[in-house]
């Protein structure tokens, strides 16, 4: 295996959880809800995926547990912000803090346990293509799912009727309500999808990336995912590009260090963030396009008249 392939393999592993958590948040935000609890839902997914894998012995059951736990945990946020109309920013932050705390408690008895890794699945024929095969078609199921989810979200948002309604809810909940769309129900589902994706991202952390459980192991990836959503100006494929750009820069800076290029490591470490900012500036240059893509009702509470 050449060094380039090795680098690309690490990039895919590093980018997958970012893309997954971000694509879920993208759908949530497209419905007009800002959920800052991504980090919390992710870590809950990680701990439950690891715990259930240990208990059942099957990382696949563990993975589903991670998804379910993320989705369930997000419903706490949905209930507080949508039904009780609590402040979304504060509730999201609280969800993150709660997630980190609860996961630490849940995971206490699983610390230091030998993890089980989700094994790669080779796709017949495709896996034998030189170069591309080992990279893209000998991956674990979560990678395949991430690609499918992004494609699915793109199709859903821009090609399906339900997606159109969801975007309408995010752009003007009053108009959508007047047209007979159930704003609250749509948002509940969008938040749940976001939670499920964050849970899957967490499962990737504790079953693929580093198959172990340590407290707070998401280490801020939920926040990067949140930034990616803005970076992508709420468009799925741009989000994938952003996630992989971030992953690529963070992996290659490690290689640059090991190679001994002699560039200060602090500068190299900041590169992924610098790259993100530069691209953000380039994208936001066109103000009108940004405004068109931003969900206009983002973060605004909706109280239906009775």
């Amino acid at each position: 295996m050449g060094i380039v392939e090795a680098i690309l393999l690490s990039v895919i592993t590093a980018a997958t959880p970012l893309v997954l958590a971000a694509i879920g948040e993208l759908v949530t935000e497209r419905s007009g809800v800002l959920n800052l609890g991504v980090e919390g839902m992710m870590i809950m997914g990680a701990v439950s995926a690891f715990a259930i894998t240990q208990i059942t012995g099957s990382p696949y059951i563990g993975m589903f547990a991670g998804v379910a736990c993320g989705a369930l945990f997000s419903q706490l946020f949905a209930f507080l912000t949508l039904t009780l109309v609590a402040n979304q920013v504060a509730t999201g932050l609280a969800l993150t803090l709660l997630g980190i705390g609860v996961s630490g408690m849940m995971g206490e008895s699983f610390l230091g346990m030998q993890g089980v890794k989700l094994q790669p699945i080779a796709i017949p024929l495709l896996a034998d293509i030189p170069y591309v095969g080992p990279l893209l078609f000998r991956q674990d199921i979560i990678f395949y799912l991430s690609v499918a989810i992004v494609a699915g979200v793109h199709w859903f948002l821009f090609r399906s009727r339900a997606g159109l309604k969801l975007r309408a809810v995010g752009d003007s909940h009053a108009s959508a309500h007047a047209l007979g769309v159930s704003v609250i129900r749509t948002r509940y589902l969008a938040v749940m999808f976001g939670g499920a994706c964050a849970g899957l991202a967490g499962a990737q952390l504790s079953l693929v990336y580093t198959p172990q459980w340590v407290e707070n192991m998401s280490a801020g990836r939920g926040w990067i995912a949140l930034a990616l959503v803005v970076f992508s100006s709420w468009r799925p494929w741009r989000l994938v590009a952003g996630g992989y750009l971030f992953g690529a820069v963070s992996i290659s800076q490690l290689h640059a260090q090991a190679f001994g290029l002699g560039i200060p490591s602090q500068l190299l470490s900041s590169l992924p963030y610098v790259a993100t900012i530069v691209v953000l500036i380039l994208i936001s240059h066109n103000r009108r396009m940004t405004l068109i893509n931003t969900p206009a009702s983002l973060g605004k509470p909706f109280v239906p008249d009775r």
């Binding site: 060094i3 590093a14 952390l205 580093t210 172990q212 192991m217 280490a219 963070s250 260090q257 190679f259």
Partner: peptide, 22 residues
């Protein structure tokens, strides 16, 4: 390789992979 963190399993693993690959 400077990870510039005390605690980030993912990043530490990435650094380890980079070193082994080299």
């Amino acid at each position: 390789v400077w990870a510039n963190t005390w605690f980030d399993p993912g990043k530490e693993a990435d650094a380890a992979k980079a070193l082994v690959d080299q």
